[in-house]
Amino acid sequence: MVRNTGIAVLCRAVFVCFVFSLLTVFSIDVNPASAQSPAGRDVSQGESLNGAVPGNTTGGVSDSEFWRQVRSGAAGGLVPLVQSQGDEWSRWRGPLQTYGGWILAVVVGIILIYFAIRGRMRIEGGRTGMVIPRFSLTQRVAHWVIAILFVILGLSGLAIMFGRFVLIPVFGKDGFAAIASLSLQAHNLFGPLFVPAVIALFITFLRGNGFKMHDLKWIMKGGGFFGVHASSEKYNFGEKSWFWWAILTGIALSVTGLIMVLPGLGFERGTMQIANVIHTAAAILFMAVGIGHMYVGTIGIEGALEGMTRGTVDVNWAKEHHDMWYEQHADEATPDVAAAEAQAADGKV
């Protein structure tokens, strides 16, 4: 093991010497003018003109020119040995981790505080036993596919991003290495499935999600979260905003994710670094609102989840949360739950 390490160090030293020799030689060949003064005189004779270094200490090339070529890879067509943009990427990534983590923590905190104060929002009039078809089978399949991907990609993404700070204290470095490895593989494998899932979500939920003037009234009444009834059509302002938020961040995640997962398509390192920063920011924004959506759709509001599992909602739930939509579909209310579910499955919603 010791012997292997020694050989590796020796090889690395030889390689570095070789590369720098090449750079020095090629930098002179590629840009011979740099070795001479504008007047065509050799600056190695001790005359310093226009940035050229006297004394030929760097082979007649100034330090700045030397490092410029190291960074650009211009010397002899070699790849860049120092990529300055990587420093900028690091400068962005740190704050993104810090502020991103705080954003997600604050969202979870607000939800917990709201739940502690307000509790579950019950159906005030109680359940009637009468239901109305609300979501088609196609919509529900599109929703749950992206929900499953959200959980897998979200957890694996969080482990990749925050695991070093959160998981190492719990599982140790070796344990975290295993979790990081599985998270990376899961993220890369399931990531591409997210692209068609976003497209399917857009197509199946587009109708009814355009903003209208009466959405302002819903906003003014606090969306009904503070005890005042807020009228709404099939989708309220919050749901519409979440839809467009998910689509826009979903597009950003899809495009930047594909850039990173398909390096074979010829994207440059700089492009992938920008993609990484955008991907991280979009993921945090997507998850922050998504966590709120999950809360509202499950434990936050009684009766909401059924719409997405069975395709039907209770009549009183519809009246209390989507009264304008209920007025349009009141004649479809039925005590025959199975028939209403079948109607929803057929897309008659």
């Binding site: 089978l137 399949v141 596919v145 499935l193 599992t309 499955a345």
Partner: peptide
């Protein structure tokens, strides 16, 4: 995976 998830979701969602 896509096929399995689709079949699974439909199994739960189809009445």
């Amino acid at each position: 995976f896509a096929g399995l998830i689709l079949l699974w979701v439909r199994r739960v969602a189809d009445p």
